[in-house]
Amino acid sequence: MNEHDDKLSARYRELAREEPPVALDAAILAASRRALGRPSFARRWGAPVSIAAVLMLAVGVTLHMQREEPGVETSEPGPAPAARSPAPIPDARKREATRKAAPAPSAHPAPMPSLPTPQPPMHSPASPPPTAESAAAGALEGKPMEAPVPAPARAAPAAAAPAATQSAERVQGFAAPKQANQESNRGAVRAPAASADALSQQKPVREERKLLPADPAAELERIARLRDDHRDEEADRALEEFRHRYPAYRIPNAVWERVRPR
């Protein structure tokens, strides 16, 4: 700043120094305190959503394991552990399809229902059924992952143990086996809790953001569709909500024309 700027600034500072009314100060400070008492959406729902996600996952895994048990138990115990190769398996859905489509390497001669989807080329018919935990985690993660490698000893005693014990054991194993699984599990569990906050931060895309359906642009598109449908009240509310969620987001002019209040 040069001398002229200093003079101008000094003059400017001589202008009235208006302040907000005391009542407004009080209202804003009260709102700021109330907000602390009332946790934000992510804080309020983060823990319950995480717990619910874990429970659903555990129940899903357990049910899946129970459905799978007869096939595993009655098959010859020898080839199953051997066939559980640690090689990466690209997609849990493909594996699921493969499991259903391919004849299991067991003594079950029952005819398998024919599936419309082609058999994935990555699997030999001798591939064992994927473990439920890897399938569930892979499906949630939505990306390729390594198949977990359970201890070979687990399959043999499993045949004799009651189904509930096996399921519990495998759920425990689900939490332990490999780093890759741990990472994917964490991502799967964390994702719902992170949804509200992760969206508005204009930061590099993080892993969990891939799982989130909404972003500011998508939200604006949704508002524009509401306008198109003449649902202006909803659109007004959505726009207001948008401004609260993404206060620093700059709405492009073209988009603004589509979403602005009518």
Partner: peptide
């Protein structure tokens, strides 16, 4: 200011 409060997290 309310937006600041709501965006705190």
């Amino acid at each position: 200011w309310i937006r600041v409060v709501e965006a705190r997290s």
